[in-house]
């Protein structure tokens, strides 16, 4: 459903939005009115509301916390709600995330991403003798301890899969669990409350683990929360080879 394709996109403050659709190889072009400020999410909503209610994309919180609106904007993997369309830009292209099967239009099946995530045992495994539950005392851990300093900057992952898509290895189906899962693994490996370190190191040290990383830094550059998964991967490698935390 191409809309008035040849109008001058600069006149009247319009933005030309090109969206890759799920029918193989087709793209739709839409002209939407420019608003200020305007995010890619605003542009997609305008398309859905004014031109094509069938355009499929996902979003929830629109403030960069749910991590569900991830798309590729001019190729770059980013959250639609956090990506501004600068005033001097009059055309954008939006594609679904790389490396994940498309469900429809911009919605991808994040299944492979979560399978990879699940493979590192992403949850806390308390020790056998640890006191767990509503009447257990939380662990005492100093804020300036090495543990806390390793974990602190690696929390806040929203599972948006921007790093997975931006990773030249994971998105290209090269059997790599990907940056987000390894970041989570690092958080738990560094956590003194956790007792599954050996098992987890086995997973991250296996064929689809840390050795696949080529330090492209696509993950760190793409993370909307400013995390550094590449550093987490490096830490895990260090942990494996040199035994440091």
């Amino acid at each position: 459903m191409a809309d008035t394709a040849d109008a001058d996109t600069n006149a009247g403050g319009l933005v030309r939005v090109t969206v890759t659709r799920s029918v193989e190889g087709t793209r739709s072009e839409f002209l939407v009115a420019r608003i200020r400020p305007m995010t890619v999410l605003d542009a997609l909503l305008a398309v859905q509301r004014e031109h094509d209610p069938a355009l499929a994309f996902r979003f929830s919180c629109r403030v960069g916390m749910c991590g569900t609106c991830t798309v590729r904007v001019d190729g770059r993997s980013a959250l639609a709600c956090q990506t501004e369309i600068p005033a001097d830009t009059d055309r954008i292209r939006v594609d679904p995330l790389a490396g994940l099967p498309v469900v429809r239009d911009l919605i991808v099946d994040t299944g492979p991403f979560w399978q990879a995530w699940a493979s590192v045992r992403p949850y806390l495994v308390p020790g056998e003798d640890a006191d767990v539950g509503m009447d257990a005392e939380p662990a005492v851990i100093a804020p300036d301890s090495a543990e806390r300093r390793a974990i602190d900057p690696a929390l806040d992952c929203i599972g948006c899969a921007a790093c997975f898509s931006s990773c030249g290895i994971a998105s290209a189906h090269r059997d790599f669990v990907g940056p987000a899962a390894l970041n989570r693994a690092m958080v738990l490996v560094a956590d003194s409350r956790d007792s599954a370190t050996a098992e987890r190191l086995e997973v991250v040290g296996a064929e689809s683990g840390v050795d696949r990383c080529h330090y492209i830094y696509g993950c760190t550059a793409a993370c909307p929360k400013g995390l550094d998964p590449a550093r987490a991967i490096r830490r895990l490698r260090g942990r494996r080879f040199r035994g440091d935390r």
């Binding site: 590729r72 001019d74 190729g75 770059r76 993997s77 830009t89 292209r93 995330l97 790389a98 490396g99 921007a162 997975f164 898509s165 931006s166 990773c167 030249g168 998105s171 290209a172 189906h173 330090y215 492209i216 830094y217 696509g218 760190t220 550059a221 793409a222």
Partner: peptide, 27 residues
């Protein structure tokens, strides 16, 4: 497959700016 930016004018403009954007060169 690779979720990096397409080669476009805006990418060239970003690479021209110093800072984090240039990390894209590593791809």
């Amino acid at each position: 497959d690779d979720g990096g930016p397409f080669v476009s004018r805006s990418l060239v403009a970003r690479l021209a700016r110093p800072g984090r954007d240039r990390a894209e060169l590593q791809r």
